[in-house]
Design a binder for these strands. Structure first.
Length: 454
DNA sequence: AGGAGGTTCCT
DNA sequence: GGAACCTCC
């Protein structure tokens, strides 16, 4: 008589290499890999549209990779605890293996699953298990730099384990939904037609890592230049767990050169999870609650102008259009565009967080919330509200002319010097909007707003 | 040992 | 402002 299968519950860990839950499940006999599309557990935090596009393709690749190893991916839809209990009853499984997640709704779901069936959670989506890096006093860190110092001490991470050669399956496979029925892809309009630079899935992640390793030694000098391919572009692959951060760490560190800045970015990713573990509602509340009294402006038309890239600030508009067209925005430009919404338009950072949640292929609850609160100055990690980025000087400083030409074609004919500020250069083309508000005026308005709350 | 108070710094 | 670490008792 064959032993009963165990369930392998995939979430944001869509890989076969260095997948601790997979290794554990295979060690116990037959495995039933399952992905549950659960829009009920996260409630209003269900995956955004761009993430769904990514998920569709990543699940396709994961199923293909599993089939090469004699397995397959079972797709089910519904509340994770109910679906897993049901699948366990169908297959005779008595245990679930999964990688642990730290979004508040996943922590709730893990508790709910554990009430119905034995759930074994594993680490591996972060450099160190979130919550495990603590201060001398034994409490979790709140500030990045001391957190990173302590985490760095514990590095490098353990060397990643390869995928198993074969994954045994059950005598009889349970039913699976058809992926197409989940309607994860856009239909009309197909806003994802420009997403073709991306290759979701573990293979695509591996290619991105390899491509990045070639220029990782220039990361420090090029990562802030949006006209250049200087960043790693690994964020969506890391978010969906198509590659583990430990794997990225070792590939990059082995490449040599000065990669410390990049490793720090991996550390920042861990830091964000540590913050949402301490403050689960970080995307919903100002960490410094005196900002609850800040007189945010309500302007649906200006919010829309920002979303659509029609603010009259070329660097902001280029970024917002790149986001819409490709599901991704260069990090330096994210900071400029976010700062512009918060300080120049004085619109609540949560509006921006929401938009990014829906439009980014790398939308991550922890990273998104931590980065928005950092930019706004409402976060646990300082950065003062009164530090207001000057979008035009940022655009010049980081040499964004080429980037603007690519994403704001109306301005493609302008010179390298005029393109950052067509109004000031007296050569704004018809069809490109005037500045929605002047820099000085916006700056003074923001400073007055923050002064008004003491 | 553990708490008070000083210092430094904050992707 | 306040977190984290240090020194001092």
């Amino acid at each position: 008589m064959e032993s009963p299968p165990t369930l392998l519950w995939f979430r944001r860990d869509l890989r076969l290499s260095y997948q601790a839950a997979l290794v554990a499940a295979v060690g116990e006999g037959p495995v039933v890999p399952v992905y549950v599309l659960d829009d009920e557990t996260p409630k209003h935090r269900r995956m955004g549209a761009a993430s769904r596009w990514w998920l569709h393709h990543s699940l396709t690749r994961l199923d293909a990779a599993l089939r090469e190893k004699g397995s397959r991916l079972i797709l089910r839809r519904g509340r994770a605890d109910a679906v897993l209990a049901e699948l366990a009853a169908e297959t005779g499984a008595r245990r679930v293996h999964a990688i642990r997640h730290y979004e508040p709704w996943w922590r709730n779901a893990e508790r709910a699953v554990a009430k119905r069936i034995e759930l074994v959670c594993h680490d591996g989506n972060y450099l160190a298990p979130p919550g495990s890096v603590t201060t001398g006093g034994g409490t979790p860190y709140k500030i990045f730099t001391p957190f990173w110092r302590a985490l760095r001490e514990r590095m490098p991470p353990a060397v990643p384990v390869a995928a198993p050669d074969a994954i045994p399956g059950p005598a009889q496979w349970p039913q699976s939904d058809a992926l197409a029925d989940w309607n994860l892809l856009p239909t009309r309009p197909n806003w994802a037609s420009g997403f073709d630079d991306w290759t979701p899935g573990e293979g695509g992640a591996r290619e991105r890592v390899a491509a990045f390793v070639d220029h990782a030694s220039r990361y420090d000098e090029q990562r802030n230049l949006p006209s250049i391919e200087g960043s790693s572009r690994l964020s969506p692959h890391l978010h969906f767990g198509e590659v583990s951060p430990a794997t990225v760490w070792h590939c990059v560190a082995d490449a040599g050169g000065s990669v410390e800045t990049f490793l720090g970015e991996l550390g920042w990713r861990d830091y964000a999870q540590n913050v949402i573990l301490q403050f689960p509602d970080y995307a919903a509340r100002n960490a410094r609650d005196r900002f609850d009294a800040l007189p945010w402006r309500s302007s649906p038309s200006e919010l829309k102008a920002w979303q659509q890239g029609r603010t009259g600030y070329p660097i902001v508009d280029a970024g917002m259009r790149q986001l819409w067209a490709t599901g991704w925005m260069h990090n330096r430009v994210r900071m400029i565009a976010a700062s512009f919404l918060i300080k120049h338009l004085l619109i609540d950072w949560r509006e921006g967080e929401r938009w990014f949640w829906d439009t980014l292929v790398d939308a991550d609850y922890g990273s998104n919330a931590v980065n928005w609160q950092w930019t706004s100055g409402t976060g646990i990690d300082s950065n003062l509200f009164v530090r207001i980025m000057a979008p035009l000087s940022q655009s010049e400083k980081f040499d964004a002319a080429g980037y603007i030409r690519r994403w704001v074609p109306e301005l493609a004919g302008l010179s390298d010097t005029a393109i950052h500020d067509p109004d000031a250069a007296g050569c704004r083309p018809r069809g490109y909007p005037a500045k929605i508000i002047g820099h000085r005026e916006a700056r003074e308005r923001a400073l007055a707003a923050v002064r008004s709350i003491g």
